[in-house]
């Protein structure tokens, strides 16, 4: 095995890492925001909206990320009559897919806070919005931390699938390098190392944070 191929192409691969990070952070943030809106709309929005949102959430459990990404990049432009850069298509596709997952985490987290807490707050004369903001959400956030750790992990892993629509993230860059140098073992092993170094601390880090603050979420 000759790892000089890595040193020869390290900048190219490094740029892939940057794109992976950028896509992860961007789609992570947007899907959490969108997921929050969906969760709230589902719990407190108009009645007719609920089954629509449930259908959306359950559909994302049925359709693979690959399919969503490919459809967004190749089919959506035809329907909408626009052109889309791969990164942007990946961002939209990932957001649509991950927001459903995030919405479920929010819902489960909020529902897991004991109803007694809401009743106690109502008895103090708080409004529903105040209760959500000051009593329920703070506790729910703590409870949701482990699930969002997994969520982050999934997000980063899903960015690798964006390689299929030619987003120049790490996976794609690795494919390019091995295609030119015919040293797939070295290149992919290195990519595995990089992904592991990226993902392992994320899950462990969330674990650590959770252990510190877990008592704040217990009621």
């Amino acid at each position: 095995m000759d790892f000089s191929v890595i040193t020869d192409h390290w900048q190219f691969l490094a740029s892939g890492v940057l794109v992976t990070l950028a896509l992860s952070v961007a789609s992570g943030a947007s899907s959490i925001a969108a997921g929050f809106v969906v969760a709230l709309a589902r719990m407190h929005g108009p009645r007719w909206l609920r089954p629509v949102l449930v259908l959306y959430i359950d559909s994302m459990r049925a359709i693979p990320v690959l399919v969503v990404l490919v459809w967004t990049f190749f089919a959506l432009p035809i329907v909408a009559g626009i052109t889309m850069a791969p990164f942007f298509a990946a961002l939209i596709g990932l957001t649509v897919h991950l927001a459903a997952y995030a919405a479920e985490i929010f819902r489960a987290g909020i529902e897991s806070v004991r109803p007694g807490q809401t009743r106690a707050a109502l008895a103090l004369g708080m409004s529903r919005a105040e209760i959500l903001r000051r009593i329920v959400l703070p506790q729910a956030v703590v409870r949701m931390l482990p699930a969002f750790g997994s969520f982050l992990s999934v997000t980063i892993k899903d960015t690798a699938i964006a390689s299929v629509i030619a987003v120049p993230e790490l996976m794609r860059q690795s494919e390019t390098v091995q295609g030119q140098t015919f040293q797939p073992i070295e290149v992919y092993t290195f990519a595995m190392l990089l992904y592991f170094l990226l993902l392992f601390p994320v899950t462990r880090g969330v674990d650590l944070v959770y252990r510190r603050v877990a008592h704040l979420g217990r009621s």
Partner: peptide
């Protein structure tokens, strides 16, 4: 802690 698509290629 690895993307499945990478494992497939590897």
């Amino acid at each position: 802690n690895l993307p499945l698509i990478l494992v497939v290629f590897w």
